[in-house]
Nucleic acid binder design. Structure first.
Length: 572
RNA sequence: GGGCCUGUAGCUCAAUUGGUUAGAGCAGAGCGCUCAUAACGCUUUGGUUGGGGGUUCAAGUCCCUCCGGGCCUACCA
């Protein structure tokens, strides 16, 4: 039995996430966590909300609430939605937790002890009307290069020229529109990543099994131009982890907080402490996952994230861990995803374009979304959601191939033998062929799941469902029954067992339907089918079952069209 | 501007890293079955692998070039 630590990129707090966010990290992470648990491994699956930073402050202001209150409410909302999607986190924490505050301050102190922190005085734009320093991209003005009037302080979206906020003509606050701006000097802490470049580079080079998407981004940052740059890890904001040197004050840094990208990944660790603290358990129980000197040396750590998060997970966070000089567990594998597009364009939070997590659950059960999203996960390139494709895939795969299989088997049995597993007959060539087919397919499925090849795993699972229908067609119990009812009973007995088998192996993808199938078969035996012949005999002669309700109702053309219309524009 | 990824059947995607005739699912066509959610099974049509050029005994795969899509470029997260 292995020990597997799994983290999903932590979603930002400023709103409800859309399906593109979901499929890019949390959902595939959940698939992997569920599968590994089923295979008997010890899994710790962590996620949290990422709560600090300017966008959170602005979202709270827009909602007319104190930022702490806003974040608490949004955390509860996101938690409810992750439950709704059956995301099986062992702990869904908060980056604003006291645990993360302490740990973030601890890391900063250690980095300073090791000579890796430098104080830098720099110039920042301050907005009197907004009462805050403005990040570069929150300053708007006319591009000096092309004359575009809505250029941002970091880059002009029109001509793509990189800018400095002071380059802008007629600069104004993108928040309030105020032109009452002033360049002020302010002091910040920088993490001297340059001095860790060699160690980071060696570490990345040792990861030969990582996806190209992951390593190429990391190497770009390591080697491009002058190489890896030092990075500011503090900000002039109210909402965040106060800058402290461990538990001691940091002279000159009063009133400042750590940069959200410094404290957010540390929450992966702090979340584990939130997990044990919630039950009053000792620190040793989370440290055995995170400290290689306290039992974590045999842990395999896998991270899931969208491609935009890669630099922070391959360089910034590892720099924090390495620079601390302490034996923290480093990531072993990064599974990164491309983006899911929506019907010819991008999902857009600001424009309300696409389907958001709350809306998705309003119109259909979680399993429908889980199946489609995972079987179309954007692993090798961006992929696209269309209502036509969604309807066709879900109806065919879930309703026709799997759902109808359960229906036809249970109803046939009820009409000919009643609702107990029937006695009589024996297995023959059809059964041998089926078992051989399942053996091949199931081992391929296991291989893909181990390798986190999500789409391939989905395809193989579906093929296993199809194999059940092929078997029925070949064995034809409805025809055999007329001449040889005992033989028909043997076929039906196996088919009923196949339903239980499908429930077990399908659970990582469609946990609710899996539970419904097990409930209908009136069994709690959900052991993994290492021995297929044995697994197909678990439900014995005389075992009672129910004919379940339709597992997956089909999506009608009318529903499809209604939803396509509803989600095309502004969020209601 | 620079870097990276990507373009394969009407649609969504494969192709053991240069090796037989480029494969699946869906959609389409035909046949079969009648237990089942008008479901299932079998067979089948469909491709100048974005265009052009090159290397090689051999190219979807490597090189050059052009065209299209996407991402990143360090103060959004």
């Amino acid at each position: 039995m292995a020990r597997i630590l799994i983290t999903s990129a932590i979603p930002y707090i400023n709103g409800i996430k859309h399906l593109g966010n979901l499929v890019g990290s949390q959902l595939p992470a959940d698939l992997y966590a569920r599968y590994m648990r089923q295979r008997g491994h010890e899994v710790l699956f962590l996620c949290a909300t990422d709560e600090h930073g300017t966008p959170a402050e602005l979202a709270a202001a827009k909602a007319g609430k104190p930022v702490a209150e806003y974040c608490a409410e949004m955390w509860a909302t996101q938690k409810a939605l992750s439950d709704g999607f059956r995301l099986s986190f062992d702990k869904f924490g908060r980056s604003s937790s006291v645990q993360n505050r302490a740990l973030t301050q601890h890391f900063a102190g250690k980095l300073d002890d090791n000579g890796l922190i430098e104080e830098v005085t720099e110039s920042q734009v301050y907005s009197h009307a907004d009462g805050r320093f403005l990040p570069d991209r929150y300053i708007e003005g006319t591009c000096p290069n092309c004359g575009y009037e809505h250029a941002r302080g970091d880059q002009c979206e029109n001509c793509t020229k990189q800018l400095d906020p002071t380059d802008l003509i007629n600069p104004r606050s993108a928040i309030s529109g105020s032109t009452d701006l002033e360049v002020r000097e302010t002091k910040h802490l920088y993490l001297k990543q340059r001095s860790l470049r060699g160690q980071l580079s060696d570490w990345i080079d040792s990861k030969t099994d990582w996806p190209v998407l992951t390593t190429s981004i990391a190497k770009k940052w390591l080697n491009d131009g002058d190489g890896l740059q030092d990075r500011g890890i503090t900000r002039d904001l109210d909402w965040g982890v106060p800058v402290m040197k461990g538990t001691a004050p940091w002279p000159g840094m009063e009133g400042k907080v750590f940069y959200v990208w410094f404290d957010a990944p540390i929450e992966y660790i702090a979340c584990a402490k939130e997990w044990t603290d919630a039950d009053g358990r000792p620190d040793a129980e989370w440290e055995r996952w995170w400290r290689t000197d306290k039992g974590a040396d045999d842990v395999r750590y896998v991270q899931f994230m969208g491609k935009d998060n890669v630099p922070f997970h391959t360089l910034s966070f590892p720099a924090t861990l390495i620079g601390s000089g302490e034996p923290w567990k480093m990531v072993d594998y990064i599974k990164s995803f491309n983006y899911l597009n929506y019907d010819g364009g991008q999902f857009s939070t600001s424009q309300g374009r696409g389907v958001f997590m709350d809306q998705a659950l309003e119109i259909l059960p979680a399993d429908y979304w889980r199946w489609w999203l995972l079987s179309h996960a954007p692993e090798n390139s961006d992929s696209e959601f269309t209502w036509e494709n969604f309807q066709a895939s879900v109806n065919k795969d879930l309703a026709d191939v799997l759902g109808n299989f359960v229906s036809r088997v249970t109803k046939f049995c009820r009409s000919k033998f009643g609702t107990d597993v029937p006695d009589g007959g024996a297995w023959g060539d059809d059964e041998a062929a089926l078992i051989a087919r399942l053996e091949t397919g199931l081992r391929a499925y296991e291989t893909h799941m181990e390798a986190m090849e999500v789409r391939k795993a989905a395809g193989e699972l579906r093929a296993l469902w199809v194999a059940g229908n092929e078997y029925l067609q070949s064995a034809a119990p409805w025809a055999v029954f007329k001449e040889d009812p005992a033989r028909a009973a043997a076929i039906v007995r196996l088919a009923l067992n196949l339903i239980r088998l499908y429930a077990v192996i399908s659970r990582p993808f469609i946990p609710d339907a899996s539970a419904a199938m097990l409930a209908a078969m009136k069994t709690e035996d959900d052991g993994w089918p290492d021995d297929l012949a044995a697994a197909l005999g678990v439900l014995e002669v005389g075992h009672s079952f129910d004919v379940p309700d339709v597992l997956f109702a089909k999506i009608s053309d009318e529903e499809r069209d209604t939803w396509a219309e509803r989600f095309s524009g502004v969020r209601d």
